[in-house]
Design a protein around this nucleic acid. Structure first.
Lengths: 209, 209
DNA sequence: CAATATTATGCTGTAATTTGCAGGATTTTG
DNA sequence: CAAAATCCTGCAAATTACAGCATAATATTG
């Protein structure tokens, strides 16, 4: 079992708040298998430490004079934590990860255990930044940034992806079942995803359906 | 089985902490077949040696000091807007911009006029995201992300920079007057900056002194 | 080898922390 | 307004930390 003490929980919660997620007391209580009171006290601590804004039912990240990036991250759509945990167990101890862009993969980085032992290769600047915040070494795949998905694409990038060998590829599903029709951007992206899939021993596609 | 002495145990525990694992005192006590007190004392030693952070129930790896760039963003360092405006007039209507990482260049993106007409090439994922939010087409230079400054570096990246032709290069000054001595990261970064300078017709170094 | 010093370990009793729960007050919702 | 949910306060139980001490193991010295 993992250490379930105020310190650990609060660190985890603080991290989620940092990433713009909101804390729902009852959910988190269930997740950590403690009573709501305990989570309430955790939130009180976080508030005292200036790391959370307490609201009825839980806590939200405190508003901060946001730099552009943080603004974007703060407004991020709510992430399905169950999905994230599933993906994390799927990853296991794999060392070399090829990670696609997307809100779910982004949230995943924040909760990836054994950060020190990983190595991430990604075409997404968001993922790159998230990894750096956790001290995970990153190789950033260069290329023209696709406007829709925000990942690097292009001939050369494609070639590079095919040259790496990753243990696991984590792909977001968005863009595969394109709602936009098949614009050239989407085409570039899906081609990229396919290349990533080919370079990894195993592939997980993260989708909620 | 190996020797069960403080030295051996502590080495093992230190290794686990290095790998990001947390130490649960009661579990480890059972594992090494010693009393909890003994493990407690081991953890005290590790803490004294600066290898562990003691918490109730065991120990956790010590919190990694935030990377410089992230720390700067987190504290919402006030950006010298005068500097930003100066740089913007300097840029004028130049189309192809080679932009370095840094808080000031990041702030600049948000205020860059004529966004539609620009094209940005950058080794910084931060800059890339900021540009994308403003709808500026970006070419992201790939490479290993340097932990200190958060820009892509490496042999290949260097080569690519030298192959592009930009109107203006905007360089941050940080890392040139390194406070950290000349670590290899810093070296990589400054090499990168030099390469960027060489690929642009004109260069501006953004610094407040 | 014997005597001594040092270190490591386990145990005990006491203090501090954490947790869940019961009750009543407060807020939200229909 | 009434019902439900959430918040707050105080408290008792469980867990863990801590300091002191006695014993066992190991190292050192003569």
């Amino acid at each position: 079992m993992s250490l379930n003490i105020p310190d650990t929980r609060q660190r985890e919660l603080a991290q989620r708040l940092e990433h713009g997620q909101q804390i729902i007391a009852t959910d988190v209580a269930a997740e950590f298998d403690v009573s709501i009171d305990t989570i309430r006290r955790d939130i009180l601590s976080l508030e005292a430490a200036g790391k959370a804004e307490r609201v009825r039912g839980g806590a939200v990240p405190l508003a901060r004079p946001a730099s552009p990036i943080h603004a974007r991250l703060a407004t991020a759509a709510p992430v399905d934590m169950g999905l994230v945990n599933l993906a994390i167990t799927a990853i296991g101890s794999a060392q070399t990860l090829l990670i696609d862009g997307g809100v779910t993969t982004l949230a995943l980085i924040a909760h990836l255990p054994d950060a020190a032992d990983r190595f991430v290769i990604t075409p997404s600047p968001w993922i790159a930044i998230a990894c750096q915040e956790r001290g995970i070494p990153v190789f950033l795949l260069g290329g023209a940034l696709s406007p829709s998905g925000g990942i690097a694409t292009g001939e050369e990038t494609l070639g590079k992806v095919l040259n790496v060998a990753a243990d696991i590829a984590l792909l977001g599903a968005c863009g595969i079942d394109s709602e936009f029709g098949l614009s050239s951007d989407i085409f570039e992206e899906s081609q990229m995803k396919r290349a990533m899939q080919r370079s990894a021993q195993r592939t997980f596609i993260i989708t909620d359906r």
